[in-house]
């Protein structure tokens, strides 16, 4: 029986002994953060799912290389980041709205390609306001350069420290700070109308 209270490191040790339940627990634990991060990088639901799956498969393939001295989530995000960046470099991406793919014509197609958002809002006006703000920010993030996008998502959405971002992106700490600083400045410019 796999205890959901086990630490990531304990689960990794069990995975290395071949316990599939431990692997399933790790997937359940990180599927939403990993998928969210990748989706916001590529803006394509189907592609994001494929890349998120590849992230977990590659991570488990290379589990023996994981150093338990580091956070498992950082290592997993590093794998996901590398896969996503490789993909972005290989292919010019079409952008997709969170309300569905641009080629979705029928309501069924729109529903199938849209993203389910977890809502904490009870009142309809709050929900609407948050959606409008969220949609503006999502669009602004989409317009950032991929490296700025990665850094700002890891910092503010995933709550990583500068050191951890440096580790995930495999770039110097100073570069991380520059990326985040510039990303904030660009986002503030793009979202200037919300300050009124």
């Amino acid at each position: 029986m796999i205890d959901t209270d086990r630490t990531d490191q304990e689960l990794v040790r069990l995975c290395l002994k071949g316990q599939e339940r431990a692997a399933h627990e790790l997937v359940s634990r990180y599927q939403r953060p990993v998928f969210s991060f990748i989706f916001r990088m590529v803006r394509d639901r189907e592609l994001a799912e494929d890349l998120a799956q590849d992230t977990f498969v590659r991570a488990f393939d290379r589990l023996a290389q994981y150093d338990p001295g580091y956070k498992f989530s950082s290592w997993l995000f590093k794998v996901g980041h590398n896969l996503t960046v490789d993909h972005i470099r290989r292919r010019e991406l079409d952008t997709v709205s969170i309300h569905g793919a641009p080629d979705a014509v029928t309501s069924d197609q729109q529903e199938a390609t849209s993203v389910t958002l977890e809502s904490e809002f009870e009142r309809p006006d709050e929900l609407l306001e948050a959606r409008e703000l969220g949609a503006s920010i999502e669009e602004a993030i989409e317009r950032l350069r991929p490296e700025y996008r990665t850094a700002i998502l890891l910092r503010h959405v995933e709550g990583y420290s500068y050191d951890e971002i440096s580790e995930v992106m495999e770039i110097p700490l100073g570069t991380v700070k520059t990326y985040i600083h510039r990303a904030r400045a660009e986002l503030q410019d793009m979202l200037g109308h919300l300050r009124e």
């Binding site: 599927q31 939403r32 953060p33 998928f35 969210s36 989706f39 916001r40 994001a48 799912e49 998120a52 993203v115 389910t116 958002l117 977890e118 809502s119 904490e120 948050a130 703000l133 969220g134 920010i137 999502e138 700002i152 503010h156 959405v157 709550g159 986002l187 979202l191």
Partner: peptide, 12 residues
């Protein structure tokens, strides 16, 4: 910062 931190996690 608040707006970015409030972005929801998405479900696969």
């Amino acid at each position: 910062h608040v707006a970015l931190s409030s972005l929801p996690l998405l479900d696969p």
